[in-house]
Design a protein around this nucleic acid. Structure first.
Length: 252
DNA sequence: GCGACAG
DNA sequence: ATCTTGTCGC
């Protein structure tokens, strides 16, 4: 039972995306981003929201900070939140960003020395209909470098699951291999990345804020033990674990 | 009616 | 996001 989103709300959201997009930086702004081995990078953040099965309003908002390059847990924050905005394709940020921002602000106030130097976000950045997905939204509002990593291909601006796309995937030989996701305009909006030797299905990486696409892809690969980069995977696992502990299933 | 639809 | 077990392979 999901009601169609009111169109005036969607129009407001579109103009908000357009306004915030003016502040987006799609190039490397940090010194560690230039180094071949990312020396100077010590903390990578990951964020996610997990839901209880029958409930799309109450969720666990999760922030983790991992060490780089070892991917060891430095900080963890799980918080039950009540969502207000519905999920509308293309407007995920309006549903999730407020709670991810709050988590970052709590960290800023309590242990600013643990603030991540870059955040990996579950979802798209510039690879988006209006080139302003969740990772861009969180990046601009937090001021932190952000990378969008989506587990599924969003079909935007002429990019789709064509035979050509499938064969490009088949041509990815090893972890770290990638190919560009090019819009009808010719602009490269993101890259499909084979994140590890073992996984065949790629992840879709795009710029969120304060990082270039090539650096974003390189960093994502450096954070992968499994298909999903460790900061996002940890945020996902730990928020689900939190729900299991605090809201045990009725049949368990 | 059918396919798409980040999470 | 969530609905969901076993199975094949290293």
């Amino acid at each position: 039972m999901s009601a169609a989103p009111a169109e005036d709300v969607v129009r407001r959201w579109e103009s908000e995306q357009q306004r915030l997009r003016l502040q987006l930086l799609d190039h490397d702004t940090e010194s560690w981003q230039q180094n071949p081995d990312f020396s100077g990078l010590q903390r990578v953040g990951g964020v996610d929201l997990s839901f209880i099965k029958g409930d799309d309003v109450n969720a666990c908002a999760q922030l983790v900070v991992l060490s780089f390059p070892d991917m060891e847990l430095l900080y963890e924050d799980s918080r039950m939140v009540t969502l207000t905005a519905p999920y509308v394709a293309g407007f995920l940020a309006f549903r999730e960003t407020p709670f991810l921002l709050e988590a970052l602000q709590r960290l800023q106030e309590n242990q600013p020395e643990l603030l991540p130097q870059v955040v990996l976000v579950d979802g798209n950045g510039l690879f988006h209909d209006r080139e302003f997905g969740l990772a861009c939204h969180l990046g601009v509002l937090s001021g932190l470098p952000c990378v969008g990593v989506a587990k599924n291909l969003l079909q935007v601006q002429g990019v789709n699951k064509s035979q050509e796309h499938q064969s490009q995937i088949a041509a990815l030989q090893k972890g770290g291999d990638s190919f560009p996701l090019t819009a009808a305009s010719g602009k490269v909006l993101g890259k499909a990345l084979r994140s590890s030797d073992k996984s065949v299905k790629p992840v879709y990486v795009s710029v969120g804020h304060k990082i270039s696409l090539d650096t974003a892809v390189r960093l994502t690969h450096a954070c992968c033990r499994y298909r999903v980069p460790e900061p996002i995977r940890q945020a996902d696992c730990r928020s689900r674990e939190y729900l299991r502990q605090h809201f045990p299933a009725a049949d368990a």
